[in-house]
């Protein structure tokens, strides 16, 4: 085992992440305005920005889903129970005792088990909920005539959309906060900017990368193994 500086986030994944940051921020701000929580923007322009941003994000998600499956990256997001208890115990207890984060990022597994479970939930439930309800909300005129009490059903759609938005807002709070735990904020954010992170490689992985994908290894910044 050796600790090497490896490119873990390819360009598309970083682009995906930061574009989501921007688009979701815009959606949250305009969405809160549309919900009547603030009046920073007039309603009409806010609807337009919210709609265009949402459609852009949907397009990005379609690309990302394609990318996840063609590159095999989707495996990174499959949740596993193994190690989850240790990570949970760390956030609830160990972190206060100055313990090290129990999870060691692996080449084939860049998320800790809690992270993977969270992203799994987001990708399979919360995000589909928000864009599903969002599309129903946007396309109200297409289905209102087909059912009775369409106004009531629209309010259900709107409330589910709102609930999903609040869950995402809560996720963002925790997501950003946890960057400060363990290795520290900067070292957590840096890989998502540069793409490179220090991870443990087995001799086989190291040999494979050096032979087949040398550009994914950054020799200069490599530090001695612990």
């Amino acid at each position: 085992m050796s600790r090497r500086c490896v490119k873990v986030y390819p360009v598309f994944e970083r682009f995906w992440h930061w574009t989501q940051v921007l688009l979701i921020t815009i959606l949250l701000i305009t969405g809160m305005g549309l919900h009547g929580m603030h009046h920073l923007l007039p309603f009409g322009p806010a609807v337009m920005i919210h709609t265009i941003t949402a459609l852009t994000l949907l397009a990005l998600w379609i690309f990302a889903t394609f990318w996840l499956f063609t590159t095999g990256t989707w495996k990174q997001f499959i949740p596993r129970i193994e190690g989850m208890i240790e990570v949970a115990r760390f956030y609830a207890w160990g972190v206060f005792r100055g313990e090290k984060h129990p999870y060691k990022k692996l080449f084939w597994r860049k998320h800790n088990p809690l992270q993977a479970a969270t992203y799994f939930g987001l990708k399979w439930f919360v995000f589909p909920a928000i864009w599903g309800t969002g599309l129903l909300y946007l396309g109200y005129a297409l289905w209102e005539d087909a059912i009775a009490d369409s106004s009531w059903w629209l309010s259900v759609v709107a409330n589910l959309h709102l609930l999903a938005a609040y869950v995402i807002a809560a996720f963002i709070i925790v997501h950003v906060y946890l960057l400060t735990v363990g290795h520290g904020f900067r070292s957590h954010v840096r890989p998502m900017v540069t793409g490179y992170d220090e991870i443990e490689l087995t001799a086989e992985q190291e040999a494979y990368l050096e032979t087949n994908e040398p550009e994914r290894l950054r020799h200069a910044r490599a530090t001695p193994a612990e």
Binding site: Y91, V95, F96, R97, G98, K100, H101, Y177, T180, V181, G182, H183, G184, R186, S187, E198, T223
Partner: peptide, 16 residues
Amino acid sequence: HIAIRIFSGKKGGPDV
């Protein structure tokens, strides 16, 4: 969480 980290004196800083 932040408060307990501060009181326990372990901020969970970089481990490198």
